[in-house]
Each structure stands twice: as structure tokens, then as C-alpha cells.
């Protein structure tokens, strides 16, 4: 490609794309080694070509590009052999065709990020159906694949204004199915990372749809067994929401208290960490509304027989801002609030 004269470049590009639309069987690792190497080299050329050349992304190439990408990435994901697969403990099954797949994803990313990329042309091919299949790939067990998908979907969301509502809706469906039906989806953390950047960019005042997402999806997500895998991303999304609209604080805190884990101390420690992140950015006016139910729970945690839970709850007292919030509300507090804080004293004793 790099030696071809400009006049022949587009034809050659087309041929290379068609050549790379042949999918190889990597489960049989000795089959077709020559063919696999030819495709790998061709993919490398395509990545280089799109990354370095300007003015080559002419309209007729778009369908060929999307076809090659689709043929390679859209596939039925292998069922997880071990139904008891514990993402925390077990090593994930890596994608055998990664030597090709990685280059296809790399090419797709360079294509999206090319200065010549035109969403107005691409939207004929990157449509709702395409995006839905892309989202289904997030269930891949291969973390390398999910990392590429995350960056790609982030770019697609950014560049295709017309697809944004659809993408949010489909993410909603994936999360709801994950919470209430399957409790199995490998890409929850990656999707939450994208959503963190979307929430961060929300215009004010927040649309009702977005608040519904917080209430109906983000808060119930705390109840899922595999919370530890995506809790950091989930907590970040929640805090982003509160920084956008502090009036949601009471709803979030009461939601977390409603889903407070009763039998899983690891989750309790995570939620205490999230509570502290929220308290770090809380408005004093919001703190007053939630301090009583919140500190009832904190008092229970202090008295927890599990030392890590008790320790994490006591750690709140290492946070000067929380201390100042509590102090401000001790003295002039109305009668019933003064009863909330002494309960802490009992727990501390």
C-alpha cells in the first residue's frame, strides 16, 4: 500500500479489505498458517495506511471498511465453559483469533479517529443494528477486546449525535437484564466507564431520563453479587451525578441504605468507601437531610463483628470534612437529630 501510486491506492485498499474479510479458524492453531500470516500483514498495512495517509477515506471505501470490520468482529461469543466462572479468581478465556482481531479493532479505531472521518457518510453503515451488535461484544471474556470496544464505543457515542439516545437505551437494557435476570455480563465495568464520561458531560438541568437511569439502574446495580468487579466505576458514576445535581443526594443515600448488604462484608466495605466519596463532595444542606439514617447505618458498621467493616466505618473520623459536617450539626441540631448522633457514641463505646 505504501508503495502504490495514489491513483491505484483506492483500488488496492479495496482489494486488501476484501482479502481481510476472510475469517480464519484459530482453534486449529496449525491450520492455514500461511494464509493467517498474509492476512495479518495486510491488516497491518491497512492500519498503517489509515493512520498515516490523509485524503484516502473516500466515500466508496466506507461500506467496504465496515463490511470487513463486521465480518471479523461480529460473531457468536463462545459460552463460558465454567458456569461458576469467577471473574475475580479465574483467568479469562482469551480470544484465540486475537492476532487478527486486535488489528481489526486497531484499524477500526484509526478509522474513527482519522481527521478525514465523516460521520455523515459513516452513519449509513454504523447504524442502530451495528451498535447493538457492538454492545453484545462487551460480554466477551477477553479483557483486551473489551478495552478496544470501550474506546471505540466512546468515540462512536461522541461522533454520532443521532445514535446517543439509542446507545443509552441499549446500555439500560443490558444493565437491567444483568441486574434482574442473568447476573452475568462481562463488560459492565467498561460500559460504566463510558457512562461516567457521558454523565460528566450532561447538560444542566438534568433530563428526567438521566435521573431515571440513576434511580432505576445505577442504584440497583449495588445489589448484584459480582459488585466488586465494577464498583469503582459505579461509584464514580454516582458521584458524577451528585456533582451535577446535588438535590439527588438524599435519593442516592437512601437507595444505598436500602440496598445495604446484610451478609457480604466485602460489599459493606465497598459501600462505606462509596459513602465517604459522596460525603467528600456533599453540600452541607444535603448532609442535614441524610445524617440520621446514614449514621444509624454507620453506627451498625462500627459495631460490626467484622473488623474490616468496623475499621472502614471508623475511618470516617479521619476525614476532616465529615468531622466538620458532624460538628456543625451537633450543637444547634433540632431535638430529634441530637438523638441520631449519640447512637454513634454508644457504638463507639
Amino acid at each position: 500500500l505504501k508503495d502504490a501510486p495514489v491513483s491505484e491506492l483506492h483500488d488496492l485498499l479495496c482489494k486488501k479489505l476484501q482479502q481481510c474479510s476472510i475469517v480464519f479458524d484459530f482453534l486449529d492453531c496449525v491450520a492455514d498458517l500461511k494464509g493467517k500470516e498474509i492476512k495479518r500483514a495486510a491488516l497491518n498495512e491497512l492500519v498503517e495506511c489509515v493512520a498515516t495517509n490523509r485524503g484516502i477515506l473516500i466515500e466508496p471505501l466506507y461500506p467496504e471498511i465496515i463490511k470487513m470490520i463486521s465480518v471479523n468482529i461480529f460473531r457468536i461469543l463462545p459460552p463460558s465453559e465454567n458456569p461458576e466462572f469467577d471473574p475475580e479468581e479465574d483467568e479469562p478465556n482469551l480470544e484465540p483469533s486475537w492476532p487478527h482481531l486486535q488489528l481489526v479493532y486497531e484499524f477500526f479505531l484509526r478509522f474513527l479517529e482519522s481527521p478525514d472521518f465523516q460521520p455523515s457518510v459513516a452513519k449509513r453503515y454504523i447504524d442502530q443494528k451495528f451498535v447493538l451488535m457492538l454492545l453484545e461484544l462487551f460480554d466477551s471474556e477477553d479483557p483486551r477486546e473489551r478495552e478496544y470496544l470501550k474506546t471505540i464505543l466512546h468515540r462512536v457515542y461522541g461522533k454520532f449525535l443521532g445514535l446517543r439516545a439509542y446507545i443509552r437505551k441499549q446500555c439500560n437494557n443490558i444493565f437491567l437484564r444483568f441486574i434482574y435476570e442473568t447476573e452475568h455480563f462481562n463488560g459492565v465495568a467498561e460500559l460504566l466507564e463510558i457512562l461516567g464520561s457521558i454523565i460528566n458531560g450532561f447538560a444542566l438541568p438534568l433530563k428526567a431520563e438521566h435521573k431515571q437511569f440513576l434511580v432505576r439502574v445505577l442504584i440497583p446495580l449495588h445489589s448484584v453479587k459480582s459488585l466488586s468487579i465494577f464498583h469503582a466505576q459505579l461509584a464514580y458514576c454516582v458521584v458524577q451525578f451528585l456533582e451535577k445535581d446535588a438535590t439527588l443526594t438524599e435519593h442516592v443515600i437512601r437507595g444505598l441504605l436500602k440496598y445495604w448488604p446484610k451478609t457480604c462484608t466485602q460489599k459493606e466495605v465497598m459501600l462505606l468507601g462509596e459513602i465517604e466519596e459522596i460525603l467528600d463532595v456533599i453540600e452541607p444542606s444535603q448532609f442535614v437531610k441524610i445524617q440520621e439514617p446514614l449514621f444509624k447505618q454507620v453506627a451498625r458498621c462500627i459495631a460490626s463483628p467484622h473488623f474490616q467493616v468496623a475499621e472502614r466505618a471508623l475511618y470516617f473520623w479521619n476525614n476532616e470534612y465529615i468531622l466538620s459536617l458532624v460538628e456543625d450539626n451537633c450543637h444547634g441540631a433540632p431535638y430529634h437529630l441530637r438523638h441520631a448522633l449519640p447512637r454513634l457514641q454508644g457504638a463507639l463505646e
Partner: peptide, 30 residues
């Protein structure tokens, strides 16, 4: 002496995985 009160964090620190924000109103030139 009046203890200098720690103010609430102006903005939560972005974790390592934070991605560039995508503004709702306009097309992102990423």
C-alpha cells in the same frame, strides 16, 4: 484557635479509568 475547616472537595478526583467527558449538547471532536 479556630480550626481551619476543611472545605468539601471542589470536584471528585478523576480515577485512572476516567475517560474524556462527552458534552451532551454538541458533537464531540474527539
Amino acid at each position: 484557635p479556630q480550626k481551619k475547616k476543611k472545605q468539601k472537595l471542589p470536584k471528585s478526583p478523576a480515577p485512572h479509568f476516567a475517560m474524556p467527558p462527552i458534552h451532551e449538547d454538541n458533537l464531540e471532536k474527539i
